[in-house]
Design a protein around this nucleic acid. Structure first.
Lengths: 130, 130
DNA sequence: ATTAATGTACTATCTGATTAATACAGTAAT
DNA sequence: ATTACTGTATTAATCAGATAGTACATTAAT
């Protein structure tokens, strides 16, 4: 998995978010074993302590669990994962909608904007496919 | 103007964002004089230095200018303000769209989600109006 | 039994952001 | 001239987050 860490926000929070995203988007499968803390930290280019902190929080939320010496695993509970996925989508949508309200964009303007971005994305895809 | 500062991200960046938002959404009008650094800082509940830092950055971008002793003002350039408004909307929309892609939501699912939130918002409005 | 890998814990240090407390320079109003 | 308000600058202290380095206990593999 590839990590995108910037210096705008606490690194451990970015690690939490991106790990959650990797889980809900299927980059990590239910029940799958994760690389070790040290390996993950090296992969992400952060200190092992920081990665440990992020993983510990993900455990508290139940999406991960660790077995003392054999490693750390994604939960088997697929329903929990799907719930998380929808919860994140809803959160993102609400944030987006709030932002648009603050910028005084009408529903029409929002729709037009999104459509433009959607088309643009389709074009990129078809361009890279040939 | 009301400020919403949390501890998730650098305060001065939140001040920049919220000031920009206040400008593009018309809470501050073109050419209008801002309260003094000290007053704004008190209003937002932050240290004057932090507010000063945020305002200084907004000046570098041209959206504000200060007159040494008479105060600080919003730019008169309405086109610049409108450009900023659209730029922020586009940025938000792109971020939202990227998030949705990462969560593997289809265009239909995105549309359904937004519609739901939009309806919910309409309901809140009409409820508070009577 | 030994080795290597795991998660976990601890302490010290460093850095950036924030706060705090002043101070200075310019100008408008009196 | 004096007063009161501007923006601006400086220095020190504080705090959270991140890093660095090391250590320990447990278990699977050899």
């Amino acid at each position: 998995m590839k990590w995108q860490i910037d210096s705008d926000r606490p690194v451990y929070k970015q690690l939490i978010e991106q790990t959650e995203q990797a889980i809900v988007s299927g980059i990590f499968s239910p029940g799958e074993r994760l690389p070790s803390v040290r390996d993950l930290a090296a992969e992400a280019g952060v200190n092992p302590n920081t990665m440990q902190r992020a993983l510990a929080e993900l455990e508290r939320s139940g999406i991960l669990y660790s077995q003392r010496t054999s490693g750390r695993f994604i939960t088997d509970d697929e329903e929990m994962i799907d719930k998380l996925r929808y919860q994140k989508a809803e959160e993102d949508a609400r944030t987006f909608f709030d932002n648009m309200k603050k910028l005084d964009l009408s529903a029409d303007e929002i729709a037009r904007l999104l459509r433009a971005i959607f088309e643009e994305d389709k074009d990129e895809k078809s361009a890279s496919n040939e």
